[in-house]
Amino acid sequence: MRLANACAALMFVGIAVYALLAGADFGAGFWDLTAGGDERGRAPRAQIEESLGPVWEANHVWLIFVLVTLWTAFPAAFAPIMSTLYVPLTLAAIGVILRGAAFAFRKASETLPLRRWFGATFASSSLLTPFMLGAVVGGIASGRVPAGEQSGDVLRSWLNPTSMLGGVMAVVVCAFLAAVYLAADSERRGRPALVLFFRRRAIASALVAGGVALAGVFVLQHDARTLFHGLTHRGAPLIAVSAVAGAATILLLVRARYAAARVSAALAVVAVLFGWAAGQYPYMLEQSVRISDAAGPHATLVAILVVLGGGSLLLVPALVWLFVLMQRGMLVAEH
């Protein structure tokens, strides 16, 4: 029981880090898409390329981390989730492919017509993946994935109000994170025009996120009562933290305190994710499968924890080095 909870908690940390890091990479795709024509969009696109290039692949691995932890530690949840929600998951994976490949192609190709194509693919697939993953979360959180070997309704499990809310929320939150981070990056590189560009967008997307969250209250109340109850009871403090952190981010942005805004933006997102986890605890698949029911045998859980512990000894220093080099401006594309 305790081992299973520990594995679930670590997996959830993986989900949160994925949302914070890769989420922002997807969000950057949204701003790339809306940055305007070749001339006007050149500077923001260059900033996006610079901020993403060295890190997006490492950020992406958190998704793999979550998947493999889920299937090893909680096979009884992994199997029904994947088979019931296979449509949005396939689309999310296609988005991952197109986004990653197009980004790499764009960087490697210098001529403009091709670049524009790759850019458009990169940007539009950056919307697809978060939307679909948000829809998957919505399907799980609203209890639409039945346990057992028979798959549930492969359409209504994600074409439903809660999933749509999850999808839209994911896109908006990614855009919000990206704008805040990019504003901070532009400031550190001393690019005031870009700072303003991204600041405006960060504030706008924060307001939109707030609006979507309010609308979400009504959606969840009608479509996902159990989740709603969880969010407004056990999860309530975390949801409150998220709201406060979101408001604080706007304030910090207005005051041009970008480094601090980055932290509070991240906090707002992490809090809402953990609010979801707390609201759903101890169930993994709503109302039927508890964390301990879905967990694999004791020996495997121990092995997973050993591997995660040992792996972190290698991972954490490497990751820290990457981000330090990044912050110091040591990682730039050749010209």
Binding site: V61, I64, F65, V68, T69, W71, T72, A73, P75, A76, F78, A79, P80, M82, E149, G296, P297, T300, A303, I304, V307, L308, G311, L314, L315
Partner: peptide, 18 residues
């Protein structure tokens, strides 16, 4: 396959993740 054996043969994938 994964539901039944994920806990048996998943470990190498977890290591591979690192």
């Amino acid at each position: 396959w994964m539901g039944r054996f994920g806990s048996v043969m998943g470990l190498p994938f977890a290591i591979e993740g690192f």
